[in-house]
Design a protein around this nucleic acid. Structure first.
Lengths: 190, 190
DNA sequence: CGATTCTTTGAAAACAGTCAATCTGTGTGG
DNA sequence: CCACACAGATTGACTGTTTTCAAAGAATCG
């Protein structure tokens, strides 16, 4: 899974594959288990080979705010904590039983140095993430809830199918009740 | 201005400074003039040496949505258009008379290849931008308007002083009337 | 089947948006 | 120097939307 992803983004020799792989750890998480907990320091890069994860925070009153999802072939983690070395403000946990390839920060950087294609991939990913964030910010201030929801299910149909409505609502910045009502209006319109 | 910024982020010889500078163009914009217009393709990197700019879109009904501000020592532009080669969905214009150092995409990439420190800077900038976006997204779904406004003026005091309230309101995703009322409540509390 | 989790629904309250009018400050031209 | 025009900010009344709280209905899992 991880290998074919790498092959799709760069050309690697067998030895390089081996070497990269030797720097990876595989983590298996059952539903609801944590990959990262609020307050811990995140020091890795994580590639999802199976399952579905979410990144979220919890405020004082216990309300959860979903920042992002990640599924097969997505990278996840907390770049803020990774870069600053500060404790993370987020939790990451598994929505489904999942499998994650973890590469420690230092090892990741060494791979980047040794394999230019890998480095380009890393830069490309963050670039794309940033652009996706910009679009999301733009939508959050310029679109109606209905439009945001439509945009979400079109952009991420798998998330819409696999994640509970309550988490999608949180991702969109609304309550689950409001999402439920918006969905009904949606159904009527079609 | 641009030179001292570069010096603060990497060590360069005089010749390197010269060379980088020879790949730059300086643009002077008067208030309200465009750096980029919706529909045009953005192909550069732009560093603000003086003034204040905003990135925003306009919808069919003429409403403006401010995505970001940029002032002295900030980079601006549209990474989405830059990366995809597609027409931009944004406008960038000057809120104050401004001065911008523009480097074309190709030239920028050459500089990145030749000067590792410059390349690191470029990666660092996008990383920071991404993290800032994540924080903004997090705030947009988890904070009250009052908290978002407080956070904005603390994080970007200069923007709060130099940009009109209506643009700040747009940036925060609310109307200028609502921002006005929130500010009054703010004033009362202190 | 029972228990838990997730979703839906209803009614009331809180909140932000809209529209229109007023107010404030700035800068220009007479 | 004043008067006026203009852009930006505020206020009020009203409308529309979202949240909140509580309860009931599905769906899922052991």
């Amino acid at each position: 899974m991880f290998k074919s992803y790498l092959d799709s983004r760069m050309s690697l020799t067998g030895a390089q594959h081996e070497w990269i792989w030797s720097n990876c750890t595989v983590k298996r998480l059952r539903k609801k288990q944590y990959l990262l907990q609020q307050g811990d320091i995140w020091k890795s890069h994580a590639f999802v080979t199976k399952g579905l994860l979410r990144t979220y925070s919890i405020d004082k009153s216990g309300i959860e705010y979903v920042i992002s999802f990640a599924m097969e072939n997505w990278w996840t983690g907390d770049r803020e904590s990774l870069m600053s070395g500060e404790p993370s403000r987020f939790n990451i946990d598994a929505i489904e039983d999942s499998e994650i390839v973890v590469i420690e920060k230092e090892k990741f950087e060494i791979i980047c140095k040794e394999i230019p294609g890998f480095n380009e991939m890393a830069n490309d990913i963050i670039q794309r993430n940033f652009i996706a964030s910009q679009i999301r910010i733009h939508e959050s201030i310029s679109s109606s809830i209905y439009e945001k929801y439509q945009s979400f299910i079109q952009r991420y149909p798998s998330f819409a199918l696999r994640a509970p409505q309550s988490m999608i609502a949180s991702y969109l910045g609304i309550t689950r009740e409001t999402l439920s009502r918006v969905r009904h209006r949606t159904a009527k319109k079609s």
